[in-house]
Amino acid sequence: MKKEAQLDLYHQMVLIRRIEEQAAELYQQGKIGGFLHLYIGQEAVSTGLIAARQPHDRVITAYRDHGVAINCGLPANEVMAELLGKATGVSKGRGGSMHMADASKNFWGGHAIVGAHLPIAAGFALGDQYAGNDNVTICMFGEGATNIGFFHEALNLAQVWKLKVLWVCENNKYGMGTSVERASAVPEIRQKAEGYGMPNSRVDGMDVMKVYEAACDAIEKVRTESHPYLLEAVTYRYRGHSMGDPERYRKPEEIKQWQENDPIGIFRKQLVSKKTTSEKALDEIEARVTQEVAAAVEFAESSPEPELDDLFKNIYAES
């Protein structure tokens, strides 16, 4: 990957981190309502993954979606505006944190019911197969979603119908507060693909370049060999499941241990040690992000509320 592209990935990861730190603050101030699930710690997964897609490849994910939204090119301003429920938000204030999408960026959401978007992802690939194009659908979900029936129905159909889906399991060890060992018959999620005769692999989800390479390889296979593939990215979320998480299910030492493998820190070290760039250049990116986040908050806070008269708009395409 070229230097500029790598620096762009670094920028994306830092932007996600800072936007979410800011969102946590706004949540504490009561400016963001509902649920807020932070992606902090997992940035390398979606950043490496989305970097490997073609613009015509579709992306769909679960409710921990701010990071993926940024990676797919949704403007930070509009992401922040959606968090604040404003008319200028990516979903016009109708979706909130868990329901961000931008069809023009081929980002199909942000879905809040665990596992329910997997059959829909199979449908994107079905539609593309029917149309006869070579789009790949990238469907992300947590390891907790692999225990629900939707996962199994979707993987089975994808394999039987040879649908071009890259299933990406972000195994962050916990479904809310229940560890993968306590919830899944096999803690190594990629094994579940074996039951469907589906090619699969596992990657270190804290290393953005490893994710990128694994994703390039997997997407290539899906596109050229016309079959689904399951990629498991082993990762960790540093924050609670959502903002109201008592965190009784894990010890601070465990979090600390993973934080020593911070995906942004790892990437920074790589960029400097391989002399791709200098510390100073990376600091400049961080400074730029600080400005971007401040601008996003300013944009969101000064944006108008949705019109009350529009409450019933868009329930149907046709009245």
Binding site: G123, L126, L157
Partner: peptide, 26 residues
């Protein structure tokens, strides 16, 4: 077979995948 698709007995993915196919233009 392309336009008349026999699906597995799996209603969630029958409806879910039809939603997806509809969203992308079919």
């Amino acid at each position: 077979a392309r336009r008349v698709k026999d699906s597995p007995i799996a209603e969630a993915v029958i409806i879910g995948s039809a939603i997806g196919a509809a969203m992308v233009g079919q």
